Amino acid sequence: MKVESSPDTSPKTVNVHDAKTHLSKLVLEASQGHPFIIAKAGKPMVKVVAIDHEPKPRLGMLKGSFVVPDDIDTPFQSDIEAMFGS
């Protein structure tokens, strides 16, 4: 497998043919934090990187940031009653 890599921390570059031939090994390396670039005719086409953990649900993320007063609807009580027929 022909691999081009620079001495710095740049990801290695693999041509399309070699990427197809060694895909399982390359994907394993990428999942372990070693991304790589697939090139066609020497031109970089895509970068393969590991997917980070799924984001946590954001429900309740502002809990404790502010207080909602018990009488929040009081200024709009007549409007609310008109809308909902109370």
Rank of each mutant, 00 (worst) to 15 (best):
G33D: 04
E81T: 11
R58S: 13
D70K: 08
A82E: 10
P57C: 04
K40R: 12
Q32P: 02
P57N: 03
S10A: 10
H53R: 10
G85A: 08
G33K: 05
S78C: 04
A19S: 08
D52N: 05
E29A: 04
T13G: 00
K12D: 08
H53S: 14
S86L: 15
H34C: 03
K43A: 07
F84S: 05
F84H: 11
K63L: 08
D8W: 15
I38L: 04
R58W: 14
G64H: 03
D73C: 13
S6K: 14
E29V: 02
D52E: 14
V27P: 05
H34G: 05
D8C: 01
V27M: 06
K63M: 14
A41T: 11
D71E: 11
E29I: 01
V16R: 12
V14S: 02
R58T: 00
V67W: 06
I37Y: 02
S86E: 14
V14D: 00
S65P: 05
G85M: 10
M1I: 13
S10M: 10
I72A: 09
S65R: 07
E29D: 15
G60P: 08
L23R: 10
E54N: 08
Q77V: 08
I37V: 15
I37P: 03
I80Y: 05
P69T: 12
S65T: 10
P55M: 01
Q32G: 07
G85C: 06
V49N: 06
E4R: 13
V67S: 11
T9A: 13
A19Q: 01
